[in-house]
Structures are given as C-alpha cells and as structure tokens.
Write a protein that binds this DNA or RNA. Structure first.
Lengths: 240, 240
DNA sequence: AGAACTCAAGTGTGATCACAAACACCGACC
DNA sequence: GGTCGGTGTTTGTGATCACACTTGAGTTCT
C-alpha cells in the first residue's frame, strides 16, 4: 500500500528547496500528519513536495539526526512510534529543560508580552469549552513557546522544539484524551502567569515542572503503548 | 589562503560515506581540530575526506541542524565562535541535563562498570600530573560519557553530545588553563564515584551540577571571550 | 499445501553536471 | 590614498544518472 501523504505547505520566502522541505516535513510531523510507523520514502516524499529527490533526501537525513524520525539500517525512514520508555525519557528531559527556559525568560518578560500570553490562555480555555482539540493543542503550544522564546536562548529553544517534534505523532492520538481531563488538573498556565507577573520565576518554573510530570503520569496510564518499536539508530549495514 | 584541515579518520565499519563523513567531522569538531571562525567549504571538506562533494554537503547540513556549526544565510558553514552568552547557555543546559543522566544511570550501575570508571579517573589524574592536556581532557570525557551511557536514555545522550560538540572548539583553547586549576577545585569525580557506590544518585548528580557551575564561572573569568583567543590560532596541517 | 527460490520493481547512495548567487581581487577613478 | 566598480573565480544548490542492495510477490519444487 503506497500512501502519498498530503504535506501542508508553508509560507516560504526565498528559502532553498531543501530548507523548505525540512520545515514542511517538520511541521507535518509535529501536527501529526503522518501516522506512527509510516514509511517515508525519499522518492515519494519528493513527489509529494514537488521537487527532485535531492532536497527530500537531505531533509529526511536532517530529521533523522535530531531523532525526529527513525532510520532503519537500510536507510529507510519511519515515523517514530514512541515506546513507553521513550515517552518517559522525553518527558524527563522536558521536565528539566522547560523549567530552565521559564527561569531564563522570567527576568526578561515585559507587561506587554504577559498580556499577550494571557490572551492565549483565554483562547486555550475557550477551545476546550468549544471541544476543539486542534485549537486546544495549538494554543497550548503557542503559550509555552511564546514563553520559551523570551528566554533568549536559541539553542535551548531548538532543543525543546526537537522534544515536541518527537512527541508529535503521539500527542495527535492523545488529543481527545488530553482535552477531556478535568480542568483543575489540566493546566497551571494561569498560576504560571500570576507567578511571572510578580517576578517569581522559580515558582512558575516549578509549576511547569509539576504540570509536565503530572501529564506524563496521566498519559502513561491512559495511553495504550505498544510493546516494541523505536528502531535502533543506524549501525553498520551488511554489505557484501 | 586555502587551508585544507586534516580530518582524523575513524574506525568506520561498513557505514555509508555520508554517515562516515558526519562522524568524522563531528569527532574533529569535538576534538578542536578546526579553529573557531574557520570556513568549512563543501568542496574543500569533500577533498579532505576523499569523497565527492555530496556526502560532505549532507554531513555539514546535519551538523548545522544540531547547531554544531553555524550556517550563514548564503549557506556557507563556519566553525562556531562561542560568545560569552552562548557559553553560559550551553553551561546552563548542561547543568540540567547531565545531572539528570547521572540520576538515571545511578539505578543501573553495576560494580564492574564502577571499577572501570575508577580506572579512568586514575588515568585522568595521571595525565594531569604528567602535564598532558589532550589525555587529560579525553579522560574527563571518557569518565562522564561512560556514566551517561549507562543512563539507558539514547535521546538524552545525544543531546548531551551535541552540547559538548558545540563547546569543543572553545575547550581546546582552554585546555592548558583547565589543567592548571588547583586539583582540589578541579573535579569531584572521586566524590561522585563514592556517592554512586553507595547508591546516592542524587548526591552524585548534585556534585556534578556544582562542578559544571564552578567550571563555568572559572572559565568566564579566565577566558577572553570577545577579543581573539589567547593562544595563537592552531594551524591545521596543510594537506596536498 | 507449504516452503524455498527467483526475479523484477523499488530503494538509498553517491558522482557528475549546470546554474546563479556570493565572493575576492585588482584596476580605474575621484 | 582611499573608494568604487567590474570581472573572473569560487561557492552552494538542485537535477539527473548509474549502481548495489532490499523487498516482496509470484513461481516452482518437494
């Protein structure tokens, strides 16, 4: 069965084709366009992108480097299927890095940014009330990354992005479950904003850490993880 | 002046040329073979690697993706020159991730591994006494990464590697300064091992965090960041 | 009928080529 | 002397092609 996935376009400026291919695939991955376990063949992706295989090849290799996709020994690329252990690992790293980003951002936030973020939280809650999981998840991302961007730490930012990227396919499956959580337990974004307004970066960071750990525990219960997967990284390949 | 740096070979098994190119460049970068600010042209790297430009191109793009090198808008790749802020950022991330790795590893260490690591610490001290900075730094890496590998967290491991990669060129310049530090203040590896032997992973993690923060503070004082490096730019051996 | 084999289509890899933009160098000009 | 402009080179990009390996379906043999 050869599926040719639809890959959403982006508002590409004059970027090189390779860069555009990379960004488009990245976006598609984070939005859960590909189902876990799907095979991403170079030629087929190129076809879907409307380019020659070359840009698709480099883009896929780059994604494999940051472990956003898995690469088989043969070089074939698969959409990762997070195991229980891998999910726990991603969450543990998030629980360290994202609070760090909050602490760094706390010293640089101004009132205007805080107000903008409060709006995002309101939209987030509205999306939950309206039963729109896509908007719900998007606003969640928007709030947190809006905060992380203020940290002024580009490397940290891209590392966090990579973690979310890897988590993407899983969260797409979990979107209904996540939105259905009791609001009281669901998010602490209001409390975080309040802490940040009074300059208590450490408190906000701790709130976030708790939120991540709580959601992780919840999903470990709620989600049916499959036994095996998360292909091993490329090793020596048999060649005779 | 076209310098064609010597790039050390690796014990490549059967890997594709692109993968080998990536690993070789990565290794060279971490060992400080390239001086900060150097321009890495695709064709020249390919020549030094003995391949066509193609594998060199993909390898450089991959390194740029994980921010191990800097990419100009034109696509040209430069060896990063760490600014003061970037060095602080890398250190702050290390201070979160590496203790996490220690905590994860603590529950999985066995006596044999601990003994092997104790040997590495001994060699580390011997290298300091003998005044061999290359061995000194190498043993330091060997000890810590030997520990991190035991964490059983592949994604965390490769993120830490990426941080060291970025820090590589800087540390090469700092090798004499680092080795000259008073031994008492220099490393807490013995204390870490002792803590791990009695199962106190949190204590070991805290030791490491303190070590990282202390070394960062030390280097922020000792290294001339904005101007040019103290040591004469290490010249790569001309090849041809 | 079940298993091993065969073969053709599909796959990733890497070299080569064409092209446009960026760059460096050197002379002419103010 | 310093600045500007033109020109030849070098650079990154992307398409195309050849090749070896993998894969899977169809066939044949036991």
């Amino acid at each position: 069965m050869t599926i040719t996935p639809y890959i959403p376009d982006i508002d590409a400026g004059d970027l090189p084709l390779e860069e555009r291919a990379y960004l488009r695939l990245r976006q598609a991955l984070m939005e859960g366009v590909f189902s876990p376990g799907a095979k991403l063949s170079i030629r087929r992706v190129a076809e879907a992108l409307g380019t020659s295989p070359m840009p698709a090849r480099t883009a896929l290799r780059r994604l494999a480097t940051e472990q956003a996709v898995d690469a088989l020994p043969s070089g074939t690329v698969l959409v990762p299927r997070l195991t229980r252990a891998a999910f726990q690992e991603v969450s543990a790293i998030r629980a360290e890095l994202e609070p760090l980003a909050i602490r760094l951002a706390a010293t640089r936030l101004d009132a205007r940014t805080l107000d903008a973020l409060a709006t995002v939280v309101a939209e987030h809650d509205a999306a939950r009330a309206a039963g729109k999981p896509e908007v719900f998840l998007q606003k969640d991302r928007e709030f947190l990354f809006g905060l992380y961007r203020q940290a002024g730490a580009p490397m940290l930012f891209s590392m966090i992005e990579a973690l979310w990227l890897r988590r993407g396919p899983l969260f797409w499956d979990a979107r209904w479950i996540l939105m259905g959580r009791p609001p009281a337990a669901a998010h602490r974004h209001d409390q975080m904003l309040a802490a940040l307004r009074r300059g208590a970066g450490d408190v906000a960071a701790q709130e976030l850490k708790v939120e991540i750990e709580r959601m992780t525990a919840f999903l470990l219960e709620a989600l049916p993880f499959e036994g095996q997967a998360a292909a091993a990284p490329r090793q020596a390949r048999a060649r005779r």
